[in-house]
Amino acid sequence: MQTPSYIALSRQTALWRQMDVVATNVANMNTPGYKAEGMMFSEYLARSRGSEGAGSDRLSYTIDFGTVRDLARGPMEATGNPLDLALNGEGYFEVETDFGRFYTRNGRLMLDQDGMIVTSSGHPVMSTDDTPFFIAPNETTVTVARDGTVSTENGAIGQLRVVSFEDEQALLRVQAGMYDAGEQEAQDVARVTVEQGMLEGSNVEPTAQITHMIQVHRAYESVQRMIEAESERQKQAIKTFTGSSGA
């Protein structure tokens, strides 16, 4: 494979990964608290073989070296459900999973069969006392104050733990709207603002993402045509060379 093919392949590989990121955004446009992601690209310049000096030709390769997350808050949506919670400001809810503590801004909560407050995936939401919340069978009213204090008609039962991180971009998305902090330490948010009966929507802009998907698809097809044309050029060159050598 010659240099033009290597350059085209680097671009095509980056486009394939970009399509995967855009498709994930589109799939999560209705996931509460989801943050859109985008690719980060870099240009790698290499001197072409046999060229020297300041004015020598350079080859440009495409390198994708990660994703960047749009941390802008999504639109606030009123639901009237007392177990739908939205964070009006910084922070993430802390949840317990089989793989350790994960973090999310998706406040679509519910009660499981044991009366425990869990996420829509069934993960317990944690309190500042490092325990989950349980609602007794005879308790029918759940109130969440703006500071995250959870109460029933029988009184307060705990306060939601809301945390922040030094580098939110370093959080690893493990599933829709849920993140693994890795080696980062979770820091309690000093001033928590929780909105009961509300959900923070995804900050994905559907029209922009679908338009982007079409653009990436067309660019990928264009590079594919270039690779096929370059392959055909090489075949013709080899055919011409072997034919002239045999003459």
Rank of each mutant, 00 (worst) to 15 (best):
I227R: 02
E37P: 10
E77K: 14
S42D: 06
S151K: 05
Q187G: 05
T193C: 04
L111W: 08
R108F: 03
K35L: 13
R17N: 13
Q236I: 12
Y220W: 03
A186Y: 13
A14C: 03
G50E: 08
Y6P: 02
Q215N: 10
M178I: 00
V142Q: 02
G107Q: 06
L9A: 12
S151G: 05
S121T: 06
T119I: 06
A176N: 02
S244L: 12
S231E: 10
N81D: 15
T140F: 09
G177Y: 05
N81A: 12
I227T: 08
F41Y: 03
M1S: 10
D64Q: 06
E195N: 12
V163H: 14
E52P: 02
A8G: 04
A54C: 00
R47Q: 14
S222K: 09
M198T: 12
V118Y: 08
Q209W: 01
V118E: 11
E205V: 14
Y179M: 04
Y44Q: 05
S42Y: 01
P124D: 08
I157F: 06
E221G: 11
V21E: 03
E232D: 15
E228N: 10
N28K: 06
M213G: 07
S10V: 03
G89V: 00
E96H: 04
E232M: 11
G246F: 08
A14N: 09
G89H: 01
Q209H: 05
S164R: 08
S5H: 09
E90L: 05
T128L: 12
M29H: 00
F93T: 02
R49S: 06
Q184H: 02
G50N: 14
L171N: 07
T149H: 01
A181W: 02
A46E: 15
A136K: 14
R108A: 07
D20G: 10
A170I: 07
Q184G: 02
T104I: 00
G50V: 04
I238T: 08
E43N: 12
G197K: 07
E96W: 04
T240V: 07
P4D: 08
S222T: 13
M116Q: 15
Y103F: 08
N28E: 10
T143G: 12
G80V: 05
G100N: 06
Q175E: 04
A170L: 12
E230P: 03
E195D: 15
Y179T: 02
A72Q: 14
T104F: 06
I214T: 08
Q196H: 10
A208S: 15
T193E: 15
Q18V: 00
P32S: 00
D112R: 00
L160M: 13
M1Q: 10
V163C: 09
L111D: 01
Q159K: 14
P4F: 01
R47A: 09
V150W: 06
P4I: 01
Y103G: 11
T97P: 04
S151D: 08
K35A: 06
N106V: 02
F41N: 05
T13M: 07
F99E: 10
I63K: 01
A219L: 13
G66A: 03
V95G: 02
Q196K: 05
Y179I: 02
G122E: 09
V223T: 15
E52T: 15
R173M: 11
G55N: 12
F99A: 15
S127Y: 00
E230A: 10
